[in-house]
Design a protein around this nucleic acid. Structure first.
Lengths: 215, 215
DNA sequence: GTCTATAGCAGGATAGAC
DNA sequence: GTCTATCCTGCTATAGAC
């Protein structure tokens, strides 16, 4: 049993370090040597636990990224139903909070969105998994939620584009944070965080082109 | 003279192929062998013309990316001044058209924004160059243009965030086009292009929270 | 300026001891 | 399950012929 724990521990720590390194540097810029060194274990451990580098990469998504995405989706759904009536303002607030504040710590969030941004830029077979397991379900929930509080004359295609717009803004502030810091000269301190989160909410609410009262 | 042209030709073709490969696969995923093979020239040509791989990468930005960004900036400024009075609608239309339609062909645009997305995700020293030569100048022009047509009670910080929002949406549709196609099941045909461009313009105009008439 | 040849190294993967 | 030792491929970079 103690042996079993130890196995798992090495395996889990490999996944943690791999995710961190893959997200910050990208798949090809990271070597197995670097990962095992950071994990403080032997080079052969990757082969033993995951058989090869590519499978380790996939496993990072399977056992780290997707469960985290599901937590976010659940957080969104729960907070939405906790509100009695679903208004547009509620949906947007809940969505943006789930993605940009939500259940993730700041570094965890950055890792999460840098990983998917690399896949968005150049999808691999990992992306198919994400779409099926996490992206499409969230998209579907969002679609239904918005449908309940937007005028019925808005077409499906326009609604889809508007949802993509909101994700565009949220992703941008997540994956490009180092670059944004350099350009506008502000750190992502808690004050700035709430500032751009509120700004995205406000921008999205008006962007959706419906006059709404403050929630 | 013919000799000189030939030199330049190899050098230029290397830059073209390098940009294409770096943008689609990322720096580390591309080897000099792959670049020279695609250029149909010798492996040593990179060393001769650029001394090493890193310098070739930098030169792609210096001689390809930045001139293209300057063309876009010029396109924006020219079209803006061609309109007599500067309204908010004009600024947003002109910006979005410059970035998403503008002077670039479709593949060229995708290359352009995939390259910078990789730098946004994980800035290298190339990014400092881009900020100085292209990003800050455009940002400054945009700031001035918006200042002329937005109520003066909007703070600088909010305006900056709103500009970033718009860029977030525009970048997203550019670099993630393959992923978006997979998720929503639509190709980037000319019809879809105009559709999402118009959607971003509309969303941005309302997002900026000022009631505007159609231009 | 272009090419061949090669030095020298880092990477992924695996066999086999413990 | 962990580790050492090693194979082998593919990379960057360069020396030197043409």
């Amino acid at each position: 049993m103690a042996q079993k724990d130890l196995e798992d521990l090495t395996r889990e720590r490999l996944l943690d370090e791999a995710e961190l390194l893959f997200s910050t540097k990208g798949y090809h810029a990271v070597s197995i040597r670097e990962i095992t060194k950071a994990t403080d274990c032997n080079l052969a451990a990757v082969s033993y636990h995951f058989s090869n580098k590519q499978s380790l990469y996939m496993e990072v998504f399977r056992s780290r990224w997707i469960p985290r995405a599901k937590r976010i989706n659940k957080f969104f759904k729960k907070n939405l139903t906790d509100h009695g009536s679903i208004s547009l303002s509620t949906v947007v607030h809940t969505l943006v909070q789930a993605i940009l504040a939500g259940p993730l710590a700041d570094e965890e969030r950055q890792r999460h969105y840098q990983l998917i941004t690399r896949e968005l830029c150049q999808p691999t077979k990992a992306f198919d998994l994400l779409v099926e397991e996490a992206i499409r379900p969230l998209f579907k929930d969002l679609f239904n939620a918005f449908r309940q509080c937007l005028p019925t004359n808005i077409e499906n295609e326009e609604l889809a584009l508007n949802i993509l717009n909101i994700f565009g803004m949220m992703f941008y502030f997540s994956f490009a944070c180092e670059a944004i810091t350099r350009v506008i000269g502000r750190e992502y301190d808690p004050h700035f965080n709430t500032q751009f989160i509120n700004n995205i909410i406000k921008f999205s609410l008006h962007g959706l082109h419906v006059n709404v009262e403050e929630a």
